[in-house]
Design a protein around this nucleic acid. Sequence first.
DNA 1: GCAACAATTTAAAGCGCTTTGGTTAATTAG
DNA 2: CTAATTAACCAAAGCGCTTTAAATTGTTGC
Lengths: 340, 340
Amino acid sequence: MNLKQLSQQLGLSQTTVSRALNNYPEVSEQTRERVKSAAIKFNYRPNARATGLATGRARAIGHVIPMNSTEVLNPIFAEFIAGASRTYSKHGYELLLTMAATGTEDSVYRQIASRQSVDGIIVHGPRIDDPRISLLQELRLPFVIHGRDTANTSEYAWIDINNRRAFFQATKLLTDLGHRDIALINGEETMTFASRRRIGYEDALQLANIPLNRQLLFEGDLTEENGYLAASALLGLTKYPTAFLVSSYMGALGVRRAIHSAGLNMGSDISVIIHDDELSYFHNSGDIPQFTATRSSVREAGTLAAEMLLAIIDNPSAPLPNRLLEANLIIGESTGPKKR
Amino acid sequence: MNLKQLSQQLGLSQTTVSRALNNYPEVSEQTRERVKSAAIKFNYRPNARATGLATGRARAIGHVIPMNSTEVLNPIFAEFIAGASRTYSKHGYELLLTMAATGTEDSVYRQIASRQSVDGIIVHGPRIDDPRISLLQELRLPFVIHGRDTANTSEYAWIDINNRRAFFQATKLLTDLGHRDIALINGEETMTFASRRRIGYEDALQLANIPLNRQLLFEGDLTEENGYLAASALLGLTKYPTAFLVSSYMGALGVRRAIHSAGLNMGSDISVIIHDDELSYFHNSGDIPQFTATRSSVREAGTLAAEMLLAIIDNPSAPLPNRLLEANLIIGESTGPKKR
DNA sequence: GCAACAATTTAAAGCGCTTTGGTTAATTAG
DNA sequence: CTAATTAACCAAAGCGCTTTAAATTGTTGC
């Protein structure tokens, strides 16, 4: 059923029916009621394409997931999107998902913009000197970045966690516990989050007068396997690290496996601190959680990012918002004083 | 730039420009070339909403992710979608993502259908006697189910793996190794995949003359935590199981943790077989993978499901396709003969 | 040189909605 | 009782495309 048919059923013009449904004032309460109940009765909902064409608004938001060459899909994106989608459905927006392989990103974003199937975009996984920021600015497409590019000083909307502070605190906790050989199992340092976490780590080492040992650094996709491989290699060193800082729960699962297969005990022999995005499949909860962690809900970040973007779309002339979330340091079972 | 502006630039009618771009035959090769290069030059791409309105096709596919009450988002869906999205972009389709909480599903699907923003739907996570099948049939919206509902005998398109056979083989491998107390850590049995896996498991037990012990069954979200809790409880039994069958990699990570904290060794003391969806963040690869597994790529299933759906949309009168994929049994390090 | 036909091109309608600029009916003011 | 005002409704244009039906141009045959 379309608007024309519905209005014929009611013996009203399309104009009046449309206005009644969209809560315009120039319709009597009586007819509005009549129209609305008829719409429910006939299960009428406006055709999204037609509404979009008429209003020039797609009522949809695009999420572009970067897929790196190794075809790895980060579960963190999924959780973020789950958070954002709640906001969208609450506001009558749809969510358009696009995967963009590294290298094709420029054309993917241009295509999205010119096809006009979305009113705004959420940018995932920002990298240092990310060309997408200026591209989207040029395309005049509202966007919010999950993360931020500290190398880019222009104005853009972002939501991020205080990665530097979080990893500073985590590292400091370890140095306070007496650890001096602390490994960092990090995401790829082209990603801004990983770079900032490393800086926080280095700051804390410096504070404790511990020279940076590049041997103890790993960067790469934070998969279980990579966590295992990195930690296994590190534990094979003669002077192996007594503490690990791991940028994700998934990587930490591999680190835990490596610790166990080396015959060591997590918590007593080797301390581990993770960053906990509160993924629903990987709860690190309980009174004393398994892992000591810097914790921040990525799902909530998704909700907030979506709200920010919708606000920008509703009021494009307002100053661009940004938001820095602090992570909470949660003490779990995986940390302890350095054994001597 | 829109079609009108582009055609004015070229001194041609909108009709000819449209036809040139859409490769209609009634345009001379010369003008076609001229039009196409102008389109590239001016970065013109048709407005998706207008095209959709004119053709009655949205050129978009909807994926509806069921979110259960515990707000858990299954990473397997994400991997499936990543596979599907390749097919979509190859065919010029977009992907619309919707999260539907249990209970709201009926209205979510109705809304999608009446808004007409998609040409078809992929149904995730089918349950036994799933009402969504008859609903979508009634709404006349093309759909493909990832999984199937064996309780529903009507015609519908699906792609599934042979869950029953896979878990039969896995269980048989364990009984052949001498195991008699085999636990099954399964997904919720309202889900058809879990139900069929359990049947395969029971078939193999029966073949080995092992009575079913309900104490050894667990069903629930296959999170790391649930895997840990279930396995910990089971290992606390006086006559604890010597083998675990785990329906997902994530659950198996928790099982592995439980085995370790019980002071046991996976592979020698306790055998474990998992179902391996080949998630990109959870590789179970290598010459001898960590886990013995029934393996089937969920990403490939996504690609195939998308192709099936697009075929249905292109030719709605053809018989509805379905596809049963076999899982491969891969021997890894996590299984061994029962110790006596 | 003209009819017949094919090859190109175009004008205009239509997809289903919103919105501008009316019109009509009811109410109030003078 | 008429004019002015307001409340309620409607006709039609327009969003940017596709597609039908018609027009134009080019080509061929006799």
